[in-house]
Lab assay of single mutants.
Amino acid sequence: FHVTIHVGDITFHIHGVSEEEVKKLEELVRRGADWREIKKTIEEIEK
Rank of each mutant, 00 (worst) to 15 (best):
T4V: 12
V22D: 01
L28T: 02
H6F: 10
E27M: 07
T11H: 11
R31S: 14
K39G: 05
V29D: 01
I42Q: 01
E21D: 15
H6N: 09
E20Y: 11
F1N: 10
K23R: 13
E21R: 04
D9M: 09
T11S: 10
D9A: 11
G8F: 05
R31L: 13
I38Y: 02
E26W: 09
V17P: 04
I10C: 15
S18I: 04
V22T: 06
H15M: 11
E46T: 13
I5Q: 00
E21M: 14
K24P: 01
R30L: 13
R31I: 10
T41G: 04
T11L: 08
V3Y: 13
R36P: 09
I45H: 03
I38L: 05
T41I: 15
H2N: 15
T41E: 09
D9Q: 11
R31Y: 05
L25Y: 02
D9R: 06
E20Q: 13
I45W: 15
R30D: 13
H2S: 15
I10V: 12
R36Y: 10
K23M: 12
G16I: 10
E43A: 08
V7H: 08
V7D: 03
H6P: 03
I45R: 01
T11Y: 11
K39I: 14
V17N: 02
R36N: 15
E44C: 03
T4W: 10
A33V: 07
E27C: 04
E27R: 05
K40P: 01
H2D: 14
R31N: 14
K24C: 07
V17K: 02
E46N: 13
E27P: 00
V29T: 04
E46A: 11
H13M: 08
T4L: 08
E44H: 04
S18L: 06
E26G: 04
G16R: 05
E43Q: 08
K40E: 12
V17D: 01
E26A: 08
I42W: 04
S18P: 07
I5D: 00
G32V: 01
E27I: 05
H6D: 06
T11V: 13
I10L: 12
E19C: 06
S18K: 08
R31F: 06
E37D: 08
I14H: 01
F1M: 11
G16E: 05
K39N: 05
I10W: 15
V7N: 06
V29Q: 05
E46L: 15
I38C: 03
E27T: 06
T11G: 02
E19I: 14
V3I: 12
R36V: 11
K47W: 08
H15G: 09
D34H: 06
E43V: 05
T4S: 08
F1L: 13
K47H: 10
E20M: 12
V22F: 14
S18V: 04
I38K: 00
V29S: 04
